[in-house]
Amino acid sequence: MFLSMYLITLTGNLFIILATITDSHLHTPMYFFLSNLSFCDICFTSTTVPMMLLNIRVQNKTITYDGCLAQIHFFILFGELDIFLLSVMAYDQFVAIRRPLYYTVIMNPRLCGVVLLTFWILSVLDSLFHVLLILRLSFCSNVEIPHFFCEINQVILLACSDILFNVIETYLTTGLMGIISFSGILYSYSWIISSILRITSTRGKYKAFSTCGAHLSIVFLFYGTGLGVYLSSAATHNSKASATASMMYTMVTPMLNPFIYSLRNKDIKRALRRLFSTAPSNE
């Protein structure tokens, strides 16, 4: 089951990237961020799932200290990129609906490039900071992590030294990056929904609500499970519940993103048909 989910994630997101690269009609800010979200989802799920599949296959659930730190670094890096990209995609739709005449001015290519570069820099710096904080902790030998990967909140609970600063930093990061970005997404969609309500066509209103509802369902699934894991990490030690919630935002949402955000889109479908069509030749 996990292998099937991983292959679907890789295939769906790879198709989105190929479609946006090869079709010039998709060279717009919306699809630019969609393709980056697909790339981020591939990397995000590849940080944890291949190791988990290998552990299941060979029945050897061990990881080195350096390997655990590397997994934490890349997991935080691509997880935060996911958060940033979901936020800017919601803002992109907000501008497209609320300020359609100024859309090309506001969401210009230069701004999109600067925003993406800023997201990468912030994510890399924060993930490195998390790793540096873990390096100051001391661990006993042969520590057992009650999880299917080295999730930072589970790792710091196993330290033999004081973890107060690590817990505070985790809460601050979760609050600043998670709650603020989630609030921004809800604000953007509240304006989008208010604009949809003004649509006179019943069919158009239903289609718009269907699209927004699908987007918001993924957002709630990703943020709800992610925030639940990190905000409750210090209060509860239920590793089984934490692992289940982590599986939702590390495996399920990256698998669903291509279908919800892109493959339901007629422009993407048209681009994929062009990509895989074999035109007959008389020569």
Rank of each mutant, 00 (worst) to 15 (best):
D82L: 08
A243K: 12
E151F: 07
S239H: 15
C150L: 00
I8C: 12
I83R: 08
Y65L: 10
F276W: 13
A235L: 15
P146Y: 07
H147I: 00
S232P: 01
S281Q: 11
A235R: 10
G113H: 03
I193T: 13
C40I: 11
N108Y: 04
F44G: 11
S87M: 11
M30L: 12
L132V: 01
M107Q: 10
G228Y: 13
L26Q: 02
L81P: 03
V155F: 12
L10E: 07
P29A: 07
A208H: 09
T20S: 11
Y65D: 10
H237T: 12
I260M: 12
D82G: 14
S38W: 03
E283Q: 09
L133P: 00
F149K: 06
I156E: 12
Q59R: 12
I16A: 06
V131N: 02
S138F: 05
L216H: 04
L86V: 01
F74A: 02
N257M: 13
L101E: 13
S138E: 15
S183L: 14
L132S: 08
A235D: 03
M255W: 02
T104G: 06
T11M: 13
K205H: 08
P254N: 11
S190A: 11
T278C: 11
L14W: 13
S217K: 10
S194Y: 07
L263S: 08
S24M: 01
P29D: 03
A96H: 06
N166Y: 02
T48E: 05
C43N: 06
V219T: 13
W191K: 14
A245W: 11
I196P: 11
T253L: 08
T244E: 07
V219I: 15
R57P: 00
V88P: 04
Q71I: 01
H27M: 00
S4V: 14
L227D: 07
V124E: 06
D92Q: 04
P29V: 01
I97Q: 10
S239M: 04
Y187H: 12
L34E: 06
I168V: 13
D82R: 15
D41L: 03
R274E: 09
L133R: 15
F259T: 03
T64E: 01
M177W: 06
N153C: 14
S232L: 13
R99C: 02
T278N: 07
L128H: 05
L26T: 02
A70F: 08
Y223E: 10
T22P: 00
L221Y: 05
G67K: 09
F119S: 02
T253G: 09
C40A: 12
E144D: 06
S38K: 08
T278V: 14
N55F: 05
P280H: 11
I268D: 09
H215Q: 10
N36W: 14
